[in-house]
Simulated scan of single mutants.
Amino acid sequence: MKINRREVIAGGLAAAASAVVRGAPLAASAGDRRNGYGAAVTLADLQSDVRLKDAVTRYCTQIVPVYELKWPTVRPDAHTFSFAKADGLLDFARQNGLTMRGHNLVWYADLPAWTKEIKDAPTAERTLRDHIATVVSYYRGKLTSWDVVNEAIPDFPKRPTERRPSLWQNLLGDSYIRTAFRAAADADPDVQLVLNDYDIESVGERFAARRAALRNLVSDLLDTGTPINAVGLQSHLHGEIEIDTDGLARCVAEFRSWGLDVIVTELDVDDRFLPASVTERDAIVAKRVNDVLSTITSQAPLRSILTWGISDGYSWISQMFPRPDHLPNRPLPLDADFQPKPFMDVITKVTREAA
C-alpha cells in the first residue's frame, strides 16, 4: 500500500507545521475538550490503562470502537449476536459525556469463519440484511453515525467503476452497497450513514485513481436514490508523501455540492520512512495533518475528526509498519507517554475554528 519516499524534508518544514514545535505545546495547557474530535479505542485498553481513559475524557467528545462492532465480535456465529463489548464502550461514553460512532456494518475483511459457508446470492443478501437490521436496530438512537460500507474501492482501481472483490461483491455485485445503506436507513432513519474509504488524500496516480473511483461510487449511490449522508475520509496518511491539496479540495467540494457531509474517520500518519529526529518527524506529521484538515475546512467547517487511536502506544501502525531503524513510531496526537505533540495542536486549532 505504501509508496517509496519521494522527498527529503528541509529544516524549514518545522516552521511550516506550526510554531508550537518549539516550547510547550498548546495542548499541554488546554484541558478543555476539542469539540468534534474523537478517537478509536478498545474496551480492553480503556479498562487496563487509566492514562488512556484520562486522555480520551480530557481531549475527546466522541469515540469509535476499534473491534467491538465488527462481525467477529458482534456476531460470532450465524445465529448469535453479542453486544456486551460494544455496550461497555457505549456505557463508558455515556458516563463521560461522550458520543459514539458505529464502525462498521460491511467490510471485505475480518469476517468470521462461518461466513465462508455463504455460497449463493439469496443467502448473502439475507445474511447482510439480517445483520444490519439487527445491529442498527439495537443501537437505534444511541449512536451518532455508522460506517455502513467500509473500503469498497480496490487498492489501485484500473477504472472508476471497479470495486474491491469481497464475499458481498462477488455474490451480489454493486447492489450489496445499496442494500446495506437501505437496510441501515430502515433500521435507524435518523443516524448518519457513511461510506468510508482511504488513500484519496495524497499526491500520485494511485491516489487520483482512488478519488475517481470513490466519486463514481458516490455518484452511483445518489443516482439510485441510496440513502447516504456522508463520505468518511479515513486519512491514514503517508508521512513521506505530500497531500494533493488541489485534488482533495475538488473531491470534497463535489461531495458537499451533492448535499453530503464530509468527515475524517481514522486519521493517523505512517512515519516509518521519515527522519529519525523526533522534532523533525513530528513537524512533518503535523504538516501532513494540517494540509489535510486545512484543505477540507477551507470550504466549510469539519464537524467530526477521529484519529485511529490517541496515543502512539496504542497505534496499529507501530505493529504493522515498524520503522526500519527500529525507533518507535509516532503516528498519533499523543506520544507513548500521553504527552501532546504538534499533531494535537493542529487538532486544537481546527476544532476551535469550527466551534
Results as ranks from 00 to 15, higher is better:
Y314A: 02
Y314G: 00
Y314L: 05
Y314C: 02
Y314H: 12
S315G: 09
S315K: 04
S315E: 11
W316M: 01
W316Q: 01
W316V: 10
W316T: 03
I317H: 05
S318A: 15
S318Y: 00
S318Q: 11
Q319K: 15
Q319H: 13
Q319T: 13
Q319D: 15
Q319C: 11
M320K: 15
M320C: 13
M320N: 14
F321S: 11
F321A: 10
F321C: 12
P322S: 08
P322M: 11
P322T: 10
P322F: 02
R323T: 04
R323F: 07
R323P: 07
R323I: 00
R323K: 14
R323N: 12
P324R: 10
P324F: 03
D325P: 14
D325G: 10
D325I: 01
D325E: 09
H326A: 13
H326N: 12
L327Q: 09
L327Y: 03
L327R: 10
L327F: 02
P328A: 12
P328L: 08
P328T: 02
N329A: 15
N329L: 10
R330A: 14
R330F: 06
R330H: 14
R330N: 12
P331I: 05
P331M: 07
P331N: 08
P331Q: 08
P331E: 08
P331R: 07
L332M: 11
L332Y: 09
P333T: 03
L334Q: 01
L334F: 08
D335P: 05
D335L: 10
D335V: 10
A336L: 01
A336P: 00
A336I: 00
A336E: 03
D337R: 06
D337M: 09
D337A: 15
F338A: 08
F338M: 01
F338D: 05
F338W: 06
Q339H: 13
Q339E: 12
Q339N: 13
Q339F: 01
P340S: 02
P342D: 09
P342K: 10
F343G: 06
F343P: 04
F343D: 04
M344I: 04
M344V: 01
M344D: 13
M344Q: 12
D345S: 11
D345W: 06
D345A: 09
D345N: 14
D345T: 08
D345K: 03
V346E: 07
V346D: 02
V346M: 04
V346P: 03
I347W: 01
I347N: 03
I347V: 09
T348L: 14
K349E: 14
K349W: 13
K349V: 04
V350E: 07
T351M: 03
T351S: 13
T351E: 00
T351H: 00
T351I: 01
R352D: 14
R352I: 01
R352S: 15
R352G: 12
